[in-house]
Structure formats: structure tokens, C-alpha cells
């Protein structure tokens, strides 16, 4: 079904987006309220919480440009050495920006 992107149609699209997004925010909690949280479920959830982030980041690291890869590497190294997130994030962004400016051919 196609919706016109004018007037009422726009509103329908916005509401559909909002409802679908809300369903994702509430759905996980809702489903879990029917699942008894035993030892296995706890382990699954614990392992999954880090894995969500890794799964988000993996294609970024593999498919991103060299600026993106260097940024992630910088963040990881600073985080491992200083153990402070803000310098790690700022360092990563700075490296991506500098690399893309200085060596646009390699980025």
C-alpha cells in the first residue's frame, strides 16, 4: 500500500514509524515477562548484551574506510591504556577527521 507524502499521509507515516519503533522498545521487555529467568536465560542475556555491540561494530570495522578503522583502533587502544571513555571517543573521532583531511587518497 502506497501512502502520499502530503497532509494526512505524512501523519500516517510518522505514526507508523513511531509505533513500530515503540514496539521494538517495549517488545523485548514484554516477551521477557513471560520467560522465567533461570541460570541459562541469565547467561544468554549476559552474553548477548556485549554481543549486540560487537555485531553492530563488526561490519563498520570490516567495511568502513581506513579512517573509520583507524578511529576504532585508536578508541580501543586509548580505552585499554587510560580506561576512560571520553578521551577514547574523542581520540577516535579526531584520528578519523585528521586522516581523512591529510590523506584523502588513502581514506
Amino acid at each position: 500500500m502506497n501512502i502520499e507524502t502530503t497532509g494526512l499521509g505524512t501523519l500516517i507515516i510518522l505514526l507508523a514509524m513511531a509505533v513500530v519503533t515503540l514496539a521494538t522498545r517495549w517488545g523485548g521487555v514484554f516477551v521477557m515477562s513471560f520467560v522465567p529467568i533461570g541460570y541459562r536465560v541469565r547467561q544468554f542475556i549476559h552474553a548477548m548484551s556485549g554481543s549486540v555491540l560487537v555485531a553492530l561494530l563488526a561490519p563498520l570495522a570490516v567495511n568502513g574506510d581506513n579512517g573509520a578503522r583507524l578511529a576504532l583502533l585508536t578508541t580501543a587502544v586509548i580505552m585499554l591504556t587510560l580506561k576512560k571513555p571520553l578521551p577514547a571517543i574523542a581520540g577516535g573521532i579526531l584520528v578519523a577527521a585528521l586522516f581523512r583531511h591529510l590523506w584523502p587518497m588513502l581514506a
Binding site: L57, A68, A76, G92, L94
Partner: peptide
């Protein structure tokens, strides 16, 4: 480098 904000933030959370 602003496209890397969220990526670097989430990586910092993983590594931390």
C-alpha cells in the same frame, strides 16, 4: 569524523 561518534562510543563500552 562525526560519523564515527556512535561507533567509537559503543566500542569504548565494549572494551571497558
Amino acid at each position: 569524523g562525526l560519523d564515527m561518534v556512535m561507533g567509537c562510543f559503543l566500542l569504548a563500552m565494549v572494551v571497558g
